[in-house]
């Protein structure tokens, strides 16, 4: 089974993040950049499918040049090789354009299964898997907390607000995963060493046959007009419980008309 795992480099969500003042894009330079956390679960799932069914695992990233750090880190967990779509013209790309580029790169690789995270921590859009599936005309099984592979038959448990749905499809398909699906492995020392030598190919827009006018700022289907910092919340009243903390809490709730 040929598996592509989508891995996105994102600014670390544990520290304050910014947008650039000049063009309203995400500041990916000053922030510490990490692998989108949910994608580590997708990598782990890909490796487990590979362990059971054989085949190869290919990491696919679209992102600026420094995304190679995250690609090497992803490779140190165990995937066989990586493809990095990198092109100056991609800066400022909207979700529609990003999905088009990723779909084109996937189309060239021709996998049976595409695994990705359920959402990215910077965009939080949760749209990429269905958008990619729409371009490719393949199935999308999204929000999986469990994946079973039997030959070409895929079954997931899709987490919903009310419980879960059991959804099936045949390969080729795109499957997105939540962080409840597995426990990602830590890269071993051997993994880290071998990751440096694993094949990492780059693709430009020309390699993918995509016109630069369709992506980046020029081709964007939506645009940020302005951004500002949200005024921080003010801390209110704080009491130390000396036996009547619960009553004081209810006094506050009553004053605010919650009880």
């Amino acid at each position: 089974m040929k598996i592509v795992v989508l891995v996105k480099q994102v600014p670390d969500s544990g520290v304050e993040r910014h947008l650039n003042g000049d063009d309203n894009t995400t500041d990916r330079v000053s922030a510490g950049n990490v692998i989108n956390e949910m994608d580590e679960y997708a990598i782990e799932e890909a490796l487990q499918v590979q362990q059971r069914h054989g085949g190869e695992v290919i990491v696919l990233t679209m992102g600026p040049a420094h995304a190679t750090e995250s690609i090497r880190k992803a490779l140190s967990m165990g995937p066989d090789s990586a493809v990095h779509v990198v092109d100056d013209a991609l800066r400022g790309s909207c979700a529609v354009a990003t999905s088009k580029v990723l779909a084109a790169a996937i189309g060239q690789i021709g996998p049976d299964l595409v695994l990705c995270g359920a959402e990215s921590t910077d965009g939080r859009v949760q749209v990429m898997p269905h958008m990619i599936a729409e371009w490719l005309g393949v199935a999308a099984l999204t929000g999986a907390r469990k994946l079973t592979v039997e030959g070409s038959a895929l079954t997931i448990e899709r987490q919903t607000d009310e419980g879960y749905e059991v959804v099936t499809a045949a390969t080729p398909a795109v499957v997105s995963v939540w962080d409840t699906i597995n426990e990602p492995r830590y890269p071993s020392f051997k993994g880290i060493m071998s990751a440096k030598k694993k094949p990492l190919e780059t693709r430009s827009l020309a390699d993918l046959g995509i016109d630069p006018a369709e992506v980046g700022f020029d081709g964007a289907t939506s645009a940020v007009v302005e951004h500002s910092k949200r005024p921080p919340r003010q801390a209110g009243h704080k009491v130390t419980d000396s036996g009547d903390g619960g009553v004081q809490m209810v006094d506050f709730m009553a004053a605010e008309k919650f009880v």
Partner: peptide, 28 residues
Amino acid sequence: IFGLTDFGVVGDLFKVVPQAIEEIRRRK
């Protein structure tokens, strides 16, 4: 979390919450 809290109680939730529950019941 106190930095964005409108009303905060520094205390043991196992003391504060049962008391709050009792107080809400009493007022209802």
